[in-house]
C-alpha cells in the first residue's frame, strides 16, 4: 500500500535493467530445466547406438563410445532389431498406420461436422446435447471398455482393427469437438452470412468458409487423434491378439517383456518407436501453439 502513495521510485533505467535481469534469469533456468528434460531422451538414443555390454559400463561414457564406433552400432542394432522376427518394425509400423490414418481422417472430419453444428446452428436440445458431449470428456474410457469389448466380441470383431477405428467415425472424441467449436465461434459470423447470401447451403458454407479458416485447429485435432490412437496401448492389448496384427507400441511392449537383457536391441526399438510420432509432430508443429492459443481457452 505504501508503494502507491510514494512517488515512482527508481529511474526508468533501473526498471529496464531489472527486466533484463529477469529475462536472463528465466532464460538460464529454462536452459537448465530443458537440459534435464532432454537428457533422458538423449540417453536413450546414446544407448541405442552402443553394444549391450557398453551401455551400463561404469563409469558411463556420455558419448556413445564403445568397442567399435557408434555408426557401426547404429547400423547393427537398428538393422538387427528391424529385421528380427521378434520386433518386426516395418510390419508393426504399417499396422499402426493402418489404425491411425483412418482414425485421423474420419475423426477429424466428423469432429468438424459436429463442432459446426454446435457452434453455428440453432436446434432443439442443443444445450442438453452439448452438456452430454462435455460430460463425456470427463468419462474415463476404461469404464466403457468392457461393455464395448463384449459388444465387439458378439459382432465377431475381436482381433481386428474395427473396434479401434470405428469409434473415430463418431465425432473423434468430445475434446476435439469442443476444441473445434471454440475455434469456429471465434470466426466472424459475417463470413457465413456472406456465403449464405451467395446461395451456399450449410454444407457448402462449412466446406468453403469454415474449414479454410480453422486450418490450425484442424491440424491440432488431427495431431491429437494421431497421438492418442498411436499410443493407445490398453485398447490395442485388449483387441489385438495375433502377432501379425501387432502395432508398434504393442510390439515393443511384447519385445521388451521377452528380451529384457537385449539392452541395445530394446533401446533401438524404443527409438524406432519414437520416430513416427516425432515426424508427425515436426510436420504440424508450426500450427500447434497457434491452434491452441486461438481456441480461446479462457472460457
Amino acid at each position: 500500500m505504501s508503494g502507491m502513495t510514494k512517488p515512482i521510485r527508481g529511474s526508468l533505467h533501473s526498471k529496464k535493467r531489472n527486466k533484463l535481469l529477469a529475462d536472463v534469469f528465466s532464460f538460464i533456468t529454462i536452459v537448465i530445466i530443458a537440459a534435464v528434460i532432454i537428457l533422458p531422451m538423449y540417453w536413450m538414443f546414446r544407448s541405442s547406438v552402443m553394444g549391450s555390454l557398453d551401455i551400463f559400463k561404469a563409469p558411463p561414457d556420455f558419448l556413445p563410445m564403445g568397442t567399435i564406433n557408434p555408426l557401426e552400432w547404429l547400423w547393427r542394432n537398428y538393422a538387427e532389431v528391424a529385421n528380427s522376427t521378434a520386433f518386426n518394425y516395418f510390419q508393426f509400423l504399417l499396422n499402426s498406420l493402418t489404425i491411425s490414418v483412418p482414425c485421423v481422417v474420419f475423426g477429424t472430419a466428423t469432429a468438424i461436422s459436429c463442432a459446426y453444428a454446435f457452434a453455428r446452428l440453432r436446434f432443439k436440445g442443443k444445450g442438453f446435447l452439448f452438456s452430454l458431449c462435455v460430460g463425456s470428456m470427463l468419462l474415463p474410457t476404461m469404464v466403457t471398455l468392457i461393455p464395448l469389448y463384449i459388444a465387439w466380441s458378439y459382432l465377431g470383431f475381436v482381433d481386428s482393427y474395427v473396434p479401434l477405428i470405428l469409434p473415430y467415425l463418431c465425432g473423434g472424441g468430445a475434446f476435439n469437438i469442443f476444441l473445434l467449436r471454440q475455434f469456429i465461434k471465434s470466426i466472424p459470423r459475417e463470413l457465413d452470412e456472406a456465403a449464405k447470401i451467395d446461395g451456399a447451403g450449410y454444407f457448402r458454407t462449412l466446406v468453403s468458409v469454415i474449414v479454410p479458416s480453422i486450418k490450425p485447429a484442424i491440424i491440432v485435432v488431427a495431431l491429437l487423434i494421431f497421438i492418442t490412437t498411436w499410443n493407445d496401448l490398453l485398447q490395442q492389448m485388449v483387441y489385438i491378439q495375433s502377432r501379425e496384427q501387432y502395432t508398434l507400441v504393442l510390439g515393443l511392449t511384447v519385445f521388451f517383456s521377452m528380451f529384457k537383457a537385449d539392452y541395445a536391441g530394446i533401446f533401438a526399438a524404443t527409438i524406432l518407436t519414437f520416430i513416427p510420432g516425432l515426424l508427425v509432430y515436426l510436420f504440424g508443429q508450426r500450427y500447434f501453439v497457434e491452434g491452441i492459443v486461438m481456441t480461446g481457452m479462457k472460457n
Binding site: 466428423t110 461436422s113 459436429c114 459446426y116 453444428a117 454446435f118 446452428l121 440453432r122 436446434f123 432443439k124 442443443k126 446435447l129 452430454l132 458431449c133 463425456s136 469409434p167 467415425l169 463418431c170 465425432g171 469437438i177 447451403g201 450449410y202 454444407f203 462449412l206
Partner: peptide, 17 residues
C-alpha cells in the same frame, strides 16, 4: 431447415454419445 441440417451434422456425435 436449420434444425434438420444440425441433426444431420450431428449424426456422428449422436451415434458416439
Amino acid at each position: 431447415k436449420e434444425q434438420r441440417a444440425a441433426y444431420i451434422f450431428l449424426i456422428p456425435a449422436l451415434l458416439g454419445l
